[in-house]
Design a protein around this nucleic acid. Structure first.
Lengths: 215, 215
DNA sequence: TGTACATCAGTGAACGCGCGTTCACTGATGTAC
DNA sequence: TGTACATCAGTGAACGCGCGTTCACTGATGTAC
């Protein structure tokens, strides 16, 4: 039984403070996403109910549903970006940084499966498409990943190659694990931590200059 | 404008030939999936319309919608299995076989994006869950992949390791490419063929015994 | 210090839609006698 | 060879649901005079 949870009617904002509702709407959308674990449940009506407001008032702040979902995705990108940079703060060298980023990426996905689903596994609404990719490239930590790969190349860790190509390789790999963990939780996975290390090992070993150690 | 395409009413099956409709329903569901490129469009009503029959008659052959989707997934698994084994028919050795399987897997996903989405990227309906995993393990080509990996180990191509772990590595990698190609078509991918080769190269190089050549 | 008024932040009711599913039924088809 | 009858393969109409969105409105709040 999903408790009906009648949210009390929200008290109307003061003049000039209309933007506060926008913030609440985003929070409610996010909360619904996490609680129900289902992007389908994030409907205009459900969000409005959650905030304690009528559905039409959503339209005072978002032109339509796509724009709301778009805004939610924004937050995920920002969060992922933060996590990627944070992960490297204690890294001893660029190679170690890559490992830490890989682990942090998978952890982010596993801990926020619905956000990850929407952002990287779902059908992208057309209206969202436009700025989406640029953001993915510039703000989600991807460009940062490219930078770290460049550092590895400069430091002579890797066999020379195109940093963009290598970065995509790494992204593809961590996305592969993350998305399968999310999509197939009932698969008889071996120990997940071990699996992550194994894949990162294999991938990085494949990139290393002969004689370098992956560990 | 999606042409309404009024399918003429289907002529009723003879006695004892009721199963024919079941076949038609499956075909229609598959066709709708491919044409609309959207799993959401595969509704009981749309399928019925397509077959030229009323919605309730679907229930003569499937207890509910989940069972219909389940049956559609079955077909995808069988197809993928076929493709995996076929891909290796001309392989010169197990290592070459792995490469061919990888390429064929990605090609299957890219050419059948909606099927791939449902099978490997989507939320699994609970009713589908049950036999799903066993089928994934035994019939989708996964167990075959494990066998080929074992051959590589036996032939001394790879550094010794757990064949299951290595097989999962490889699956994760090709799934990573495939699912990102499908989910992010607007991403500025470099040449896709080249990317596939690069990733397979890197992955296999990471697994190879020193001195073996990946090419 | 009081009041008319524009503005802002919402509300309430309704629109039309497609969905999965149920239920009582119909009418052609084959079989038994 | 003819006919009653059970069975099979469907139909037609309706159920209740939640959805995104629109439209005319209301009523509190701050401001100008």
């Amino acid at each position: 039984m999903t408790t009906a949870e009648k949210t009390p009617r929200r008290t109307r904002a003061r003049r000039g403070e209309g933007e506060k509702l926008k913030e609440s709407i985003l929070e409610a959308a996010e909360a619904l996403l996490i609680e129900t674990g289902d992007a389908e449940s994030v409907s205009i009506r459900a969000v409005a109910e959650r905030v304690g407001v009528t559905p039409p008032s959503i339209y005072l702040h978002f032109t339509d549903k796509d724009e709301l979902i778009f805004a939610v995705c924004e937050k995920h990108f920002a969060e992922l970006h933060r996590i990627m940079t944070e992960a490297t703060s204690e890294a001893s060298d660029p190679l170690d940084a890559l490992r830490r980023m890989g682990r942090a990426y998978v952890a982010f996905g596993v801990n926020n499966p619905e956000q990850y689903r929407i952002t990287f596994m779902g059908r992208t609404p057309h209206s969202v498409d436009e700025g989406h990719t640029e953001r993915l490239l510039s703000n989600s930590g991807f460009s940062y990943l490219v930078d770290v790969v460049k550092s590895c190349l400069d430091a002579g860790h890797f066999v020379p190659g195109d940093p963009l190509m290598i970065a995509i390789d790494l992204w593809v790999t961590v996305h592969g694990i993350t998305s399968l963990f999310i999509a197939k939780p009932e698969f008889p996975w071996p120990d997940k931590e071990e699996l992550i290390e194994h894949i990162l090992d294999t991938q990085l070993t494949g990139l290393l200059r002969d004689g370098e150690s992956g560990a």
